[in-house]
Amino acid sequence: MLETDFFRRWLTAAAAAVEREAGRLTELDSAIGDADHGSNLQRGFRAVIAVLEKENPAGPGAVLILAGRQLISTVGGASGPLYGTLLRRTGKALGDSPEVTPAQLAEALRTGVAAVAQLGGAKAGDKTMLDSLEPAVEALGASFTAAAEAGEKGALATVPLQARKGRASYLGERSIGHQDPGATSSALLITALADTAEGTA
């Protein structure tokens, strides 16, 4: 069973991954976006860690809802609303349970990913974070490790795609050949989840 502390550790691991990879995320974003994806997420996840240290949300769902709200209020651009929606809707789907099963988390994440797709009007293949999140959530039914591998593979698979949504879509064919920064940061989030589940985070 996954308890409140597990979700705190997951978000702490995600924040550490964003700190570590912020430069690379910004580099990817400079090719096809506003060159601020890394710094925006860095600011957002620092705020998440600060609010989790200050407040004491009871239950996995409450942790994710609080984190999502914080990302929406502190992250500029599209990243804040999209990541905030992912975590908030996942948290709401988990409800008030003090602990959840991996299967319940997978189902809740599916709800969160669907909300992201609706908000951004995107689907898999559009060269967005969904290219990492959708296969990752599908694979989560098998294992956390499978989800991390699917998320990473999904991010890499955005390289040959032409962007159809977001800032990168303005570039048309020039977006081809670049890895999508949103899919890359989504893969980091899922890898942090797998590392937490394996006790390595």
Rank of each mutant, 00 (worst) to 15 (best):
L2S: 05
E3I: 04
D5V: 06
F7H: 05
W10P: 04
L11F: 11
T12W: 10
A13S: 08
E19D: 14
R20H: 12
L25N: 01
L28Q: 13
A31C: 14
D34Y: 07
H37G: 12
G38H: 09
G38Y: 08
F45D: 14
A47G: 12
A47T: 14
A50H: 14
V51M: 09
E53S: 15
P57W: 06
P57F: 11
A58H: 11
A58N: 07
G59V: 03
L64T: 04
L64D: 10
R69A: 10
Q70M: 13
I72P: 10
G76Q: 15
S79H: 11
S79C: 14
G80L: 02
L82E: 11
Y83D: 14
T85G: 09
R89Y: 07
K92P: 08
A93N: 08
A93P: 05
A93Y: 03
S97I: 03
E99W: 02
P102Y: 05
P102H: 11
A103L: 09
Q104F: 01
Q104C: 07
A108N: 06
L109Q: 09
G112M: 02
G112F: 00
A114N: 12
V116P: 01
L119P: 09
G121Q: 03
K123E: 13
D126L: 00
D126H: 00
M129L: 11
L130E: 00
D131C: 01
D131I: 01
D131G: 01
S132H: 00
S132D: 05
A136R: 00
A139Q: 13
A142W: 04
A146V: 04
A146L: 09
A147V: 11
A148C: 12
E149H: 13
E149I: 12
E149M: 11
E149P: 13
A150K: 05
G151N: 01
K153S: 13
A157Q: 09
K165P: 00
K165A: 01
G166F: 02
G166K: 03
Y170N: 06
L171T: 08
R174T: 10
S175N: 05
I176A: 06
H178L: 10
P181R: 06
P181W: 00
P181A: 06
G182I: 03
G182R: 02
A183W: 00
S185A: 11
I190C: 04
L193C: 05
A194R: 04
A197K: 04
G199P: 04
T200I: 13
T200D: 08
